[in-house]
Nucleic acid binder design. Structure first.
Length: 553
RNA sequence: GGCCCAUUGGUGAAAUGGUUAACACAUAGCCCUCUCAAGGCUACAUUCAUGGGUUCAAAUCCCAUAUGGGUCACCA
């Protein structure tokens, strides 16, 4: 019996003529140097920060080069797939503002001419290539049970040799086609394995985009190509898909490095041109015990993309952060090109870190703070509106009622060469500006944080004097400030800090004490942005109203 | 255990055989200042996991050791 007979018994309804696929998915007609990348997650839960980094970098380099970035869903393992997994992935990508040129858009929809982009829908394609390999004697059915595989491994462990299904350890590799066909016809369960021609003593070389040359032994494992449910395993599916989808660059986590020998062998056996590979280091974190470990989906909330969305950290800030940890020269590029979009940055694989980098939330927040400080008040308002519409509906209503007022608040100390930087996220903003709204300004007396002056008689005296004699809403900033100084002199407080520092005993206090009284009575807080601006925005009615709260006593 | 990878300050890192080890975050101090947020200045690795070697010269090359990570599934 021939290999063809065997192949026909195994895949009676599949043609091994793979040239139809080669024709259906022709080489892409892209300009020289265009890069085709993909993001290929399995639908097992939310998108992890590490995967997101890979997706973002993949998209970035393809965009950089005028290429294509597509999404492929790797759902060949039914056991691990979760319900609505695909939707979850697409939502995470959306939230993160990563758009695809091609690929799955939902469970049922997709765009692009190289689909289907969901692996479980590509069964017949994989089987066609598997059939071809069987015909060529490069693959065979294996009838080993789980117990048999276990016992092989135990023997190998005992003898301290290499573990795996290979060479002389195999049971089914050299069965006759007669026996194979008979056992299949008897209903025995089987899988399809590669009949690896590899030799462990020989080396293969991976020219990795980020790590350079890596030498490894050739693969001699008879790896599983097709499972008993007829679906392929990652290795096989990846090789076929990345070829048929005409991928030029495969970017993936470095946990895949060690299976490269399998992949390169498969590419060769299938006579496919191999894409370039870039293996990215894992994203780590330091846990409670001080140990470094991989950022974990289960344990670390910050591993989820949705975390940043909920926190109101601007997506662009996260991208900026991702770029700074992805390419070591990005940060200096950005500081010398502050007005350019990060999209203009030329990504360089050689500048990627080879080791796993620590995920540093502090640094992210710092980047976010700088990012927000560069936006216009209108932009901040729009983003804040979007954020609160989902996560703080009451505040959303409030800012919409006072849209111009809110924008003006957000504009305080923004239009200047060195803008204020106090919002690291949109969820932060309310904590900084709530007191500007009467609806939220309902303090108890204990909420006021007057620093040095504790005596309410003195506080009332200062406020009344200021209100009656010095405060004029129409004053410009200099006049406003000079008047406060005048009041300091009248009340025996130092209006000039230098004088005060030289002779503190000559004064009851200094100008800071006075401005603090005004500031705190208006906001309850000892630390706020520019007082003049705040008073200007509150307006004369609110100012006097808030001053007079203390007159009750 | 086999194979592969990594190891520069609290953190991310630069430097790819040449002389004082960039820069950023964090931390501390000072200055500026109506308080903050910033900003400016200064400090923070006698040393690049350890031990050998090559060299006039090593964080950079080689070897060994240690530590950490990955992988060795009908998971991806």
């Amino acid at each position: 019996m021939t290999n063809e007979d065997l192949a026909n018994v195994i895949f009676p309804n599949v043609s091994s003529d793979t040239s139809i696929y080669e024709k259906k998915y022709p080489e892409r007609n892209l300009k020289e140097g265009a890069i085709v990348t993909r993001f290929a997650p399995s639908p097992t839960g939310f998108v992890h920060m590490g995967s997101l980094r890979t997706a973002f970098v993949s998209q970035f380099v393809s965009k950089n080069s005028g290429g294509v970035f597509y999404l492929r869903i790797e759902d060949t393992d039914g056991k691990r797939s979760i319900e609505n997994g695909i939707e979850g992935i697409i939502k995470d990508l959306n939230d993160f503002d990563i758009t695809i040129d091609e690929g799955a858009l939902s469970e049922t929809k997709s765009i692009g001419n190289y689909g289907p982009y969901i692996q479980s829908e590509r069964k017949s394609i994989y089987q066609a290539y598997a059939k071809k390999l069987i015909e060529e004697g490069l693959a065979y059915p294996c009838f080993c049970t789980e117990e048999e595989i276990d016992s092989i491994r135990e023997k190998q462990e005992h003898k301290k040799t290499r573990i795996g299904y290979y060479g002389a350890w195999t049971k089914c590799r050299d069965l006759s086609n007669e026996e194979r066909i008979e056992r299949i016809k008897n209903g025995e369960k089987y899988i399809i394995r590669l009949k690896s021609p590899g030799n462990f003593e020989r080396k293969v070389v991976l020219n990795d985009l980020v790590r350079g040359k890596i030498e490894m032994p050739e693969n001699d494992l008879d790896v599983v190509l097709i499972k008993s449910d007829g679906l392929p395993l990652y290795h096989f599916a990846h090789v076929i898909d990345d070829h048929l989808m005409r991928t030029t660059h495969v970017l993936r986590g470095d946990e895949w490095i060690s299976s490269y020998p399998i992949h390169t062998q498969l590419f060769k056996l299938l006579r496919f041109e191999e894409p370039k590979y870039g293996h990215l280091g894992v994203v780590m974190k330091v846990d409670e015990t001080g140990a470094r470990r991989k950022l974990s989906k289960r344990k670390d909330p910050e591993a989820a993309v949705s975390y940043y969305h909920e926190k109101g950290i601007p997506i662009d800030a996260v991208k900026l952060y991702l770029l700074t940890i992805a390419n070591s020269n990005f940060e200096s590029w950005l500081s010398s090109n502050p007005d350019k979009s990060y999209n203009e940055f030329k990504f360089d694989f050689k500048k990627m870190s080879e080791s796993g980098s620590l995920f540093d939330v502090e640094k992210l927040l710092n980047i976010s703070k700088n990012y927000i400080s560069k936006l216009t008040a209108e932009e901040v308002y729009a983003n804040l509106e979007k954020f609160t519409a989902i996560y703080d509906k009451d505040f959303n209503k409030l800012i919409k009622n006072y849209k111009d007022y809110t924008t003006n608040i957000l504009n305080i100390e923004r239009v200047q060469k060195k803008p204020r930087k106090d919002y690291a996220s949109y969820s932060d903003i309310k904590n900084h500006i709530w007191y500007m709204y009467d609806e939220l300004f309902k303090p108890d007396k204990e909420d006021y944080d007057f620093q040095n002056i504790k005596d309410f008689n003195e506080i009332n005296k200062i406020l009344n004097l200021y209100l009656n004699k010095y405060y004029d809403f129409n004053d410009d900033k200099d006049t406003w400030f000079n008047k406060i100084k005048d009041m300091c002199d009248e009340l025996g407080y130092a209006s000039n800090m230098k004088d005060y520092k030289e002779n503190p005993s000559n004064y009851k206090g200094n100008i800071t004490d006075i401005t603090t009284v005004i500031r705190v009575s208006l906001t309850t807080k000892a630390m706020t942005p520019d007082l003049y601006e705040i008073m200007k925005l509150l307006g004369p009615e609110k100012v006097s109203e808030r001053f007079l709260i203390f007159n009750v006593d």
